[in-house]
């Protein structure tokens, strides 16, 4: 009898864990994937890392006490996973300029602009790109980014400033170029 109860408890515990995990996946998989993509600049690799991340998350799900902390917890796992990938083997990193980032052909003006922005963001230095994505994707505050990346807040704010500044300038210079061409 006790055994049966114990089993039932284990089962319901498993079920509970499964439910928590699925909630976590549904809530965060998209942004976690995007974040991975901006980190590694490669879709299949990003997907691999996300799978690895969630697998690790599942294994240590019991250690996640505070659901509010889930986001940064996952990001931490992801960043560690990414670092591990570099330890494992120094991958041949393709230069993003040589690769077509989107398979779809941009058909409209906005799609073109969209693609352009993408390229520009991919071209940012990682130290600028990462805090920017934490802000754009997860709505992290300066303090939260600082904590996540283990930097001080001023450094983070400077990097965010530079990231946008560079993007804006690059965009404007491209527009000027295009304007000249068109004109």
């Amino acid at each position: 009898m006790r055994n049966k109860n114990g089993e039932a408890q284990v089962l319901s515990g498993m079920k509970e864990k499964q439910k928590r995990y699925e909630t976590l996946v549904r809530a965060f998989h998209a942004d976690i994937y995007r974040y991975a993509y901006w980190l590694v600049k490669d879709k299949p690799v990003a997907e691999d890392i996300v799978q690895e991340t969630f697998l690790r998350a599942w294994r240590s799900l019991d250690s996640l006490q505070d659901e509010k902390a889930a986001k940064s917890w996952l990001i931490t796992i992801l960043r560690r996973e990414n670092a591990r990938r570099f330890e494992r083997k120094q991958l041949d990193l393709v230069d993003i300029d040589d690769v077509s980032v989107f398979d779809e052909q941009p058909s409209t003006e906005s799609a073109l602009a969209h693609r352009e922005l993408n390229q520009l963001m991919l071209g940012l230095k990682e130290e600028y790109r990462e805090p920017l994505m934490l802000q754009l994707l997860f709505g992290f505050s300066g303090e939260e980014i600082a904590e996540q990346l283990n930097l001080n807040k001023n450094t983070v704010m400077t990097r965010l400033f530079r990231a946008r500044n560079q993007l804006k300038e690059a965009l404007e210079s491209q527009n000027t170029l295009r304007g000249r061409k068109n004109g």
């Binding site: 995990y21 998989h29 995007r34 997907e47 996300v50 799978q51 969209h114 993408n118 963001m121 754009l136």
Partner: peptide, 23 residues
């Protein structure tokens, strides 16, 4: 615009895959 551009398309079946792979 940056925010929109940052939200790259996510593989459609990713959530399922993640849940599936775990099970």
């Amino acid at each position: 615009r940056l925010s929109v551009a940052s939200k790259v398309p996510v593989p459609e079946d990713l959530a399922h895959k993640l849940i599936w792979q775990q099970s």
